[in-house]
């Protein structure tokens, strides 16, 4: 009889987790019928495609950059509109500032539903309704962006803005006083940081969503892929990669600056 050494509950939980992972994995892997020959065929095509990728050409760079600007603008406009919408709605939803409980609850439910639907689907729907182009992109992105901002804003209002809201209430201020003199000035920097973060996410999504017809650099990438033009595709991927990378750095710095300022 061996002497046990471990903490039973911790070990049992961990074993369960891995056991379930394996038990689920094996049938799922068989269910998907991944074929080995298909895999080898694909791998066999890799060297050829890599060779095509490496024909670096700067020919398409100007077009790529123009379309990149379009993508950035789509993200920019949808974030601006979202900020206005969500500022308005957040104060109707947040517990400490909501003028009417019932309306707040209803809006909250709508926000949850809107958030659950993936961005891609919103954009698809917008494209189906408005036709291809940047305007459909802005419209489609509006829903996920606004719901994201509303969720973050209301959380902040309820968390940090409470004190100033109560102070103004105590002095007999109206709802407008509470919002414009109480909550917005105190939460100004936090909101800016959230907006910066949201902008970063939205740009990444815009790039993708061009591929389903929402305008911007994604449209080009989609064309390159469907016509097997790998050389400009690599250029496009690099442009996207560098943009997202720089954006990540910049927003990180902005957020850090704002966090320092707030302190």
């Amino acid at each position: 009889m061996k002497i046990p050494i471990s903490h039973k509950a911790t070990r049992r939980n961990q074993r369960w987790f891995f056991a379930i992972m394996i038990v689920l994995f094996i049938p799922c892997a068989f269910y998907l019928k991944l074929s080995y020959s298909q895999f080898m065929d694909g791998v066999g095509r890799v060297p050829d495609i890599v060779k095509q990728f490496l024909h670096i050409s700067l020919e398409d760079l100007p077009t790529l950059l123009t379309e990149l600007l379009t993508s950035l603008i789509i993200a920019f406009l949808s974030v601006i509109i979202s900020v206005f919408l969500s500022l308005l709605l957040s104060f109707l939803i947040a517990d400490s500032t909501a003028p009417n409980r019932l309306i707040a609850k209803g809006l909250r439910l709508i926000v949850v539903i809107v958030r659950t639907i993936p961005t891609t689907i919103w954009v698809l729907l917008a494209v189906a309704s408005m036709g291809f182009g940047s305007m459909a992109g802005v419209l489609g992105l509006l829903f996920p962006t606004t719901s994201f901002l509303i969720k973050s804003f209301t959380a902040q209002i309820d968390e940090t803005g409470k004190d100033s809201v109560e102070a103004i209430r105590a002095l007999g201020g109206t709802w407008w006083h509470v919002v414009f003199n109480g909550a917005i000035p105190t939460l100004y920097t936090t909101f800016l940081a959230l907006i910066a973060f949201n902008f970063e996410i939205t740009v990444a999504e815009t790039v993708i969503l061009g591929m389903v017809g929402a305008g911007g650099i994604g449209v080009l990438l989609q064309e390159y892929i469907s016509y097997y033009e790998f050389a400009p595709l690599l250029m496009g991927i690099l442009v996207v990669f560098i943009t997202l990378f720089i954006l990540e750095l910049v927003t990180n710095r902005i957020r850090k600056r704002l966090a320092d300022n707030a302190r």
């Binding site: 993708i208 591929m211 892929i225 997202l244 990378f245």
Partner: peptide, 8 residues
């Protein structure tokens, strides 16, 4: 890998 869009 992370910064090349998933759809690409």
């Amino acid at each position: 890998i992370r910064n090349v869009p998933f759809l690409v």
